[in-house]
Amino acid sequence: MTELRIEGLSKRFGTYFALDDVSITIPHGRFVCLLGPSGCGKTTLLRVIAGLEAPSAGRVLVDGVDQTAVPTHKRGMGMVFQSLALFPHLDVAGNIAYPLAIRGVDRAKRAARAQELLDLVKLPGMGGRRIHQLSGGQRQRVAIARGLSIDPQVFLLDEPLSALDAGLREHMQIELRQIQQSLGVTTVVVTHDQKEALTMADLVIVMKEGKVQQAGTPMEVYHAPANAFVADFIGSTNLMPCDCDGKAISVLGARLPVVEGDLIRATGAAQLSVRPENVALVPPAEGIPAEVTFIRDLGESVHFVMTAGGRTITAQVPPAARPEIAVGDAVGLAFRPGHRVVLA
């Protein structure tokens, strides 16, 4: 059992806080994604966990044991770097067995372990290849295998798939998740790609400016965002200023009664978040008046971009339900009851 706990972690560079009082508890065997825009502190947090950066304040605990003063090389964590950092002077098996070699494991056991891991990452028989002979996806797999070779208690990955092209990337996301589930190792992945996070994670931690904005399951952060930043960063959403008294939401001149399923996180002057798929187009008289300014037909779905009360609102409609509407038409907007989120 490996529980990773972060307590009050801060990292200051001069007057700039890369991490600002971060506390997280990650239970054993969970797959966690640290998600946020660049500069939000997610990579710094990963590096502090690995011991590559010393925190200015706070502690990192593994199973209740304080690791903060333990040097990197004694933490026994596995890590995959953004640049992969495969050693060019060693072959594939040499890379994978490197952590075993420096621990004095004998040659036969190293070879056996390398083979086992190559099978795990679906590169059987590739142990003798040089790194420069491998494709991008193969390098990725070798880096993952190397990070797992000592059976780490904690497996850390820094933007591991960012160098791959879109198709391969989605494939590797699934595979990485499957490997992690089969081993049950506590895993932390840094990513700026929200789809990647939603695909792989048990737990998504959304960060901004060194602070944790929300920690929750993918569906929690998607359907019940903690604040406007999370709502906007995870998926896409329409954000509008509104006023809410707990019983009804006043927005764009309309008064919408709160129903079961609507999430009210703030009252008074607040922000209303409605996902594009929850915006319905109705006849002009039946909804909030709006004008269509652009239609984006993506094949799998159609996006109607509209202005209403000076704000831009996007509605997403499945192609089968596409109404006969053209740019310039006046329409009415309805926000699907039970899918409205009022945020501070």
Binding site: T72, H73, F81, Q82
Partner: peptide, 13 residues
């Protein structure tokens, strides 16, 4: 690449 050194360190060197 400095990451090579960091990688070696995380692996116990």
């Amino acid at each position: 690449d400095r990451a090579l050194i960091e990688a070696a360190r995380t692996m116990g060197a």
